[in-house]
Write a protein that binds this DNA or RNA. Structure first.
Length: 268
DNA sequence: TGCATATGAGTAA
DNA sequence: TACTCCTATGCAA
């Protein structure tokens, strides 16, 4: 279930469970055996996220620190295990075992060992992440201004803004009443600021609740249990929740987009 | 039981 | 643009 909030939540959890202590690592599947061998027994210093990318930092002994870069892609997922005596399934790429926590990673698009330079190279390619406080709506505005594509495509482009995925894309455009084909560089500063601020709120709520909820009134923090269909407005909806009209389903930026042609007519 | 689908992105052409 | 990686889930049969 990887949009950015999932990754930031994983970073937070893993930092809390393993941070500052030596852990053991293994690759039951075998595809990260060399990495696991380098890392096992080392101190897990930190975990952090940028967009949908997860990074671990491991202490070097006499050498430089080691980093792990993980990207879940569409299929990757982490599972928590009770203890290291639980047999991993054969497709587990990486298992990390700490004093009282064990996590299994399966199906990632990327799971690789990097040095500090390597981490920097990846982060340099990523756009501003609404969950990272160093970035502001100004960064987002500057980024959008440089792009010619439709806002519906740009929202999925991790170089433009990092951490949003296909669900948040449709939901953001819906609440802003924006036509997905509006050029990103045509949006007013005010609209971009609003887009940034809503993204931040939704992603933060996502970190907290571990799910995507876009239907809470702005500023609300109390989350009532909601059925899946009530958590989003337009994504995969049959009809528009505002006008009851038909939802248009189309490909935009290589992915399926959902929008109401009647309500989302702003071009800014 | 089996198949379509999915919240992603790199690479080749 | 098309193809590839790779796994889990939900729903139809």
């Amino acid at each position: 279930m990887p949009e950015g909030h999932t990754i930031h939540r994983l970073a937070r959890d893993h930092r809390g469970w393993f941070g500052g202590r030596a852990v053991s690592t293994e690759s039951p599947q075998g595809r990260f055996s060399e990495g696991a061998e380098v890392l096992t027994g080392r101190v897990f210093v930190d975990a952090f996220a940028h967009g949908k990318h997860l990074f671990y930092r491991f202490a070097g002994s006499s050498d430089a620190d080691h980093y792990v870069h993980i990207h879940l892609g569409l299929f990757g997922r982490f599972r928590n295990r009770k203890s290291s005596s639980d047999e991993p399934t054969p497709n587990v790429r990486l298992r990390i075992s700490g004093a009282d926590r064990v996590v299994d990673l399966s199906g990632p698009t990327r799971c690789e060992l990097l040095d500090e330079e390597g981490v920097k190279a990846i982060r340099d390619r990523l756009g501003p992440d609404p969950l990272i406080d160093d970035y502001t709506h100004e960064d987002c505005l500057a980024s959008f201004a440089r792009r010619r594509g439709a806002i519906g495509s740009v929202l999925l482009d991790q170089k433009a803004i990092a951490g949003l995925g296909n669900i948040f894309r449709s939901e953001l455009l819906f609440v802003l009443k924006l036509n997905p084909r509006t050029p990103a560089n045509a949006l007013s500063p005010r609209t971009v600021e609003e887009l940034w601020s809503i993204s931040r709120e939704w992603l933060r709520l996502g970190v907290k609740t571990n799910r995507i909820i876009t239907t809470l009134p702005r500023g609300t923090t109390k989350v009532a249990t909601r059925k899946a269909k009530e958590r989003t407005h337009i994504y995969k909806a049959k009809s528009c929740p505002a006008c009851a009209g038909e939802v248009s389903v189309f490909q935009l930026g290589q992915r399926t987009a959902y929008a109401c042609a009647r309500c989302q007519n702003r071009s800014d």
